[in-house]
Structures are given as structure tokens and as C-alpha cells.
Amino acid sequence: MIWIQRFFWAGDSTVKQNNYTSFPQTGIGQAFALFIKQSIRIENYAQNGRSTRSFIAEGRLDAIDKRIGEGDFLFIQFGHNDEKKQDPSRYTESFGSYQENLLKFIDVARKHGAHPVLITPLYRRKFNEDGRTLVEGTHLDYPEAMIELGKRENVPVIDLCTSSKALIEQFGEKATRKWFMHVEPGIYPHFPDGKEDDTHLQYEGAYRFSQLIAEDMKKLGGVYADLFIDPDSDYEDPAMLID
């Protein structure tokens, strides 16, 4: 049997695998498949509204623990819901239980010989009154806590929070509306009244931010860079997946 390399997503709705019931909402985990080799299998365990605390409490990390193996990857992206202090079932302290929980994800990957990768949360599209710059600190100090943990544990950190903020500001308020869930009434059956949402993504946004992650991972080199499609090769034989 041919060995199939896999990578696992652990996270919230911004990376979740969506279906027609939430269309056109698209998670980064869906668009990321555009960049990786066809021979790599994606298993996306991300779910709406989850924090590190609730993801673990619901047994989702245990499910990954049972399936992940040597040479696989575990992408760990949390922060949007850990910061919700009003909800004790999800809230974590940034430099306390948040880091402790992230370490549990790292330990699951490492004990199986897999590669953990930390990803700071996607920046929220909240422009200041000038319409050019984004409101500072929409994720408080959770990105900094993740970065600090990554340095301490020698785990790669993809700082999507910083890179996504820069990209949103570069393209501006008007152009980035179509990246996020800004939809008019009467177009999509599951959003009959329309929607204005500066956290969740449509397909183009998921593609844009997946590209940021891919670019930063390629810079890591080695096994991380090897995940991605060679731009000089336009075809990969699907037979690679067959016994």
C-alpha cells in the first residue's frame, strides 16, 4: 500500500470545511487544498465557535489523536473564541490556559511523530473611521501568546493575524468586502436577508488568506515546503492515491 501523507486542521469557523447549507461561506481549510499536492489528504476537524477549551472538551482533539501518524501535520488555529470572557465554556486566559491548551495539541502531534504548526487567528475586518486602517488589537494578546509559546516549544508559527491585517489594509475597505461574508438579500437561500460579517469568509477571501499561509510555510523549507504543488509542474497523477 502507498503511504498517504495527511494534514489535520484544528480550529474554528474561519478554517472549517463548509457545505451547501452555509454557502457562500468558505473556510481557509477548503481553499488551502488549492496549494498542496494532490497526494496529501486533508482531514478538517475545525468547527464553528470552538475555542481551545471547547474543542478539547468535546473530544475533537481525542479524535485527531486516534488518527494522526508519523510524518503527518497538525495545523492549530485558535483565538477568535478563546477571548470570549462572557462564555466560561470557551474562554481561556491568553498567557495561561490558552497556552496550556495549545501545548496539548502540540503534544498530540509530537507523540505520533507528526509536525505541529501554530497559526495565529485571522484578523477581523474592522476599519477605523478613516476607511483605510483596521482597528488595533481585535484579538487582544492571544496572537502574542501563541507566538511566545511557539518560540518556547520550537514549533513553527504562521502569523496570519499580522499578514492578513496588512493584506486587508493594502486592498482597502471596498475591495475586501467580497472577501468576507457581505452578501445582498435574496441571493443565497440560506441567507435570505443578506449578511454583513467581517469575520467569516467567502471563497476569494479564503483563497487570499490560504495563500498567505502557504507562502510563509514555504519559507520554512524542508518538510513544510514539500507540501506544496511545484509551480513548474501542472499535473499530478491521481493514481498515486491508488494501492
Rank of each mutant, 00 (worst) to 15 (best):
A145E: 08
K126S: 08
Y224F: 15
L160H: 00
T52H: 05
W9P: 05
I76P: 12
Q99I: 05
Q47D: 13
A109G: 14
S89L: 06
G49M: 10
Y20S: 13
G71T: 01
P116K: 10
Y224T: 14
E196H: 00
P88S: 14
T162L: 01
G205R: 08
L160G: 00
E43Y: 07
A114I: 09
Y224L: 14
Y207P: 02
F171E: 12
M181V: 02
H112R: 15
K16C: 09
F127W: 01
E136L: 11
K104T: 06
K165Q: 08
A214N: 07
T52G: 01
E169F: 13
A166W: 04
E136H: 11
D12M: 10
G205E: 06
T26M: 10
F32H: 06
P88D: 13
K219M: 07
M181K: 02
P24S: 08
G194A: 07
D232Y: 10
E215F: 09
T133V: 06
A46Y: 05
A175F: 15
A175G: 09
G194M: 01
T26R: 08
R152K: 14
Q25A: 08
G194H: 06
N48R: 12
F180R: 05
A10P: 05
L227Q: 11
E148M: 10
Y20R: 13
E196M: 00
